[in-house]
Nucleic acid binder design. Structure first.
Lengths: 211, 211
DNA sequence: TTGATAAAATATACGCGTTACAATTAAATA
DNA sequence: TATTTAATTGTAACGCGTATATTTTATCAA
């Protein structure tokens, strides 16, 4: 009898089996897909967990089995968006070999991406429910931090190709901040009479190259 | 009798008189003062209308007599913060007469203000409950838009003193975006190894001057 | 098939912002 | 003092995110 118990014990406790990893991932994806559509359509704050659950056909609380909170669902969408952006930038980075045009293209790509998808920008940077701890968590996200590093590295090496070693780190930071600021300002302060975005970006690049 | 009526009628219906303008303003200020303390302490979203009312010693419903919504209280605090910032900048602007040092000082002041008061920055730019319409309303606020114009004008004229007319508008936009971006990036992406803020700002100013 | 068991899924409940509406209080008049 | 009018408060309701309690479900041993 003891031997029989041992035989069946290999994985065999009683009780409903835990979800497999792939079942969990599939469910998370299902929730994220529905959320993506609804958030972009009506905005993050306008979509309730109850509404999202109903749309998927599950109980509201089931969502909390797969995500700790509503903001986690949004953060997953952020990662996907950044993946898109960084993929695009990596492509451009490979296509252009001359340092200055490459720097310009990358910079332009970053700003253009957000200006082309202001709804995504808002979903990433301006959604509700993004409290202090949540926002500065950006860099904790592997996807985002590696992508940010990728951009800054590209800027860094492009600048190094072009310039003396001195001040390169600072100039990289300046340009990075500038690109972030241009995207941010042009989208959020939309009624201000900004110059043409492309010209602004080109001037920003010129600034770090010529000073 | 008719004459008597006329005499007492000058403003005299029976009944409790409506609040005077100054009474309304004083109550609004009282609410805002309490909110300022509590919001900075615990964060906007953590403070409920019910809690705020209790703290002031009035009924929750009374708050809605003086503010249309919770976000309006926050917006009032925004205005006060911007007033502080712009006052400081105006002071510096008057103190410095040489164009380049003035430009540098103003730029530094803008960034330094936010870096010194990251909690204010977060309360203005990163509080919860700030949906799309609310955020791009910045420029509708008299206080804010006039202050923004003040900065950009100062930058514009400083640049004009220093440079040929050409591209000044674009350079102004670049620097403005850069200052916004530097503040934004250094505060929100706080784990990234940014260079010294002062050096970054100075380099940013150099960028628009030398290109 | 029938319990036992453990995980998944759901139901319930709480405090939130906000609104509507009824009831109460306060300050003026006649 | 009675009347009138506005300010203020009380109460209830709605949908929200979500913590906790409860129920359902899928597996085991017997």
């Amino acid at each position: 009898m003891i031997i029989q118990r041992t035989k069946s014990k290999q994985n065999g406790q009683p009780g409903r089996p835990a979800l497999t990893e792939s079942q969990i991932l599939r469910m998370r994806e299902k929730i994220a897909d529905a959320a993506q559509i609804l958030f972009l359509q009506d905005g993050y704050s306008a979509i309730s967990i109850r509404r999202l659950a109903t749309e998927i056909g599950i109980s509201p609380m089931t969502i909390y089995k797969y995500y700790d909170s509503k903001i986690q669902i949004l953060r997953r969408l952020w990662s996907q968006i950044f993946k898109d952006l960084f993929t695009e930038i990596a492509l451009i980075s490979k296509r252009e070999n001359e340092p200055v045009p490459r720097l310009t293209s990358i910079s332009l790509a970053y700003v253009t991406y957000w200006l082309k998808h202001p709804d995504h920008y808002r979903m990433v940077f301006m959604s509700e429910g993004v409290s202090q701890p949540e926002v500065s968590i950006f860099v904790e996200d592997e996807q985002i931090s590696s992508g940010l590093g990728l951009i800054s590295q590209a800027l860094y090496s492009a600048l190094r190709d072009q310039q003396k070693e001195q001040d390169i780190k600072i100039k990289t930071d300046v340009l990075l901040c500038n690109l972030i600021g241009i995207s941010h300002a042009l989208i959020t302060i939309s009624n201000y009479p900004w110059s043409n975005p492309e010209e602004v970006v080109k001037m920003a690049v010129l600034g770090v190259l010529n000073s």
